[in-house]
Simulated assay, not measured.
Amino acid sequence: MSATGPVADAAPPSGPAGVWAAQRRALGSFIRDQRRLARLSLRQLSALSHISNPYLSQVERGLHVPSVRVLQAIAEALDLSAETLLEQAGLVRDQVGPPGGSRSRGEPDDDRTVERAVRADRRLSHAQKEALIAVYRSYTDRDHEDDR
């Protein structure tokens, strides 16, 4: 490969640039996986989110970091929380637990972890995921009420 060849063919950069590139690719992969789980084509997601088809394709391939507005539009079109995509983009972090990294069961982060796992399960349809999350919330909300 010559020195003038495409940057995409070069070895991934190390350091902060490599971390950002990996984050872009991970975000793009996550969006593509969620689109596929929703059984949407790229064109359908483009129409639902009002974002151009070529730009969405580039985001899914990790070539661009979308703005918060674009992430929100994608999240709405995929029926995800904007927070989920913002976390995947590295713009919002999960809540940090108490010092020492331990959390007790039933804290809000546990709830989000369970919900993320259900949403990420490729074997479930969107309707099944929503039903499972609703049942989970009905039990955990009741448990929190009992603690009061």
Rank of each mutant, 00 (worst) to 15 (best):
E115L: 08
A11I: 12
G15W: 10
G101T: 06
W20M: 13
V70Q: 05
P54E: 12
S102G: 13
S49Y: 01
S102Q: 12
D79K: 08
L85T: 00
R36T: 07
S102C: 07
G100I: 15
V114S: 05
Q72F: 07
D147V: 03
A73E: 04
Q95L: 08
L80N: 06
D121I: 07
L86E: 04
R39F: 15
Q23N: 10
L85V: 03
D147I: 09
S52V: 11
P108Q: 11
D33S: 15
A127I: 09
V135R: 04
I74T: 08
S57T: 03
D111T: 01
I31P: 00
L40N: 05
S125P: 07
E107A: 06
Y55E: 07
R116G: 00
S104K: 11
A131G: 08
V92P: 01
L91V: 04
D121C: 15
H50F: 13
R32E: 13
P98Q: 07
D94F: 11
P99E: 05
A3I: 06
L91R: 11
A131K: 10
G106V: 03
Q72D: 12
E83C: 13
G5Q: 13
R105D: 13
R39S: 15
F30T: 04
Q88S: 08
L80W: 10
P66R: 03
G101P: 02
V65P: 00
E130L: 13
R35K: 08
G5H: 14
A8W: 10
P54R: 00
R24K: 14
R148G: 03
V92N: 00
E76I: 10
A26M: 10
W20K: 14
P54W: 05
S138W: 12
R61Y: 09
L42C: 06
V96L: 09
L86R: 01
G62I: 02
P66N: 11
E145C: 08
I74E: 02
R93N: 09
R137L: 09
M1T: 10
A8E: 12
G106M: 06
R116Q: 12
